[in-house]
Amino acid sequence: MYKEAEVELLDKVRRGLTEQCDELPEVTLRKLDVMRSNALNTSVPKQRFLGQALSGIPFAPLSAALSAGVLGVALLMTQGSDIEKTISDEDVLMSNEDMEFLENLELYEWLDAEYG
């Protein structure tokens, strides 16, 4: 009985909120449109720039530069295990990492477990 009443109440809540979305004034919808396109235009995903940038670069020097980069990363990774051991909470706090990123770490772990 109580469960049914709760289901009915939640249905009303959902309908009420959805109606608010459907009845937003035209001026608000236009503002949302502008905001969306601003967000997309000011922050174009990285892949696009990468694709454009690579199309004009000769292959041989690029390949050499990439090889050198991969070698450097490989060398760093061999020492990585030692480096990791020395990282403390203090290092994390002293790093320039965005605090919000650190706060959200748990969310990322969950997203990774859920969708990764």
Partner: peptide
């Protein structure tokens, strides 16, 4: 191909913006 992520993001934002505003 390169614009695909942007188009997908546009669709996503369209689908959530009203609810987010309310």
């Amino acid at each position: 191909h390169d614009l695909k992520p942007q188009i997908e993001m546009d669709h996503f934002l369209r689908s959530v913006e009203r609810r987010a505003f309310v």
